[in-house]
Amino acid sequence: MMEFILGKYNYLVCILLMMIGFYAMIAKENLVKKVIGLNIFQTAIFLFYISVSYMEGATAPVVWQGQEGVLYGNPLPHVLILTAIVVGISMTALALGLIIKIYQEYGSIEENRILELNQLEEEQNLKRAGR
């Protein structure tokens, strides 16, 4: 057990962070909190990729000219994550834009309040249709 934890502690922390973010996304009422959770979830995945790319005794993947036999880290996950971070901020911005719109429409960023307002509106519509 101890060996397992010492060998894989990075992956375990990734999973822990991912679950913290996931919990915020499904259990928190506040929409901004949900986006914070989304951000934590994202970074957890990034951390997972970077952990995979890490090599014991390697150095950053920038070639030293005239140096032979240097072990470089794996650059491929770095590239994937570098672009993923930029796409992540774009997605966050879009989510935040939607939150601003929702606030302008409902005057609240709490999920259950928004659901309640929707339900009230539906009931009113039904009453109107009944008459």
């Binding site: 901004v32 986006v35 914070i36 951000n39 970074t43 990034f46 970077i50 952990s51 790319s53 890490y54 090599m55 390697a58 150095t59 950053a60 993947p61 920038v62 880290g73 770095h78 994550i81 570098l82 971070i85 930029v86 992540g88 901020i89 966050t92 911005a93 935040l96 939150i99 601003i100």
Partner: peptide
């Protein structure tokens, strides 16, 4: 973890722009 490119991106975007956008919202 030997990923300076990714660290630079996260420092500029994750710690910089994301915070500003959140505060603006």
């Amino acid at each position: 973890m030997d990923a300076p490119d990714v660290a630079l991106t996260e420092a500029a975007i994750g710690a910089g722009i994301t915070t500003i956008l959140f505060i603006a919202v």
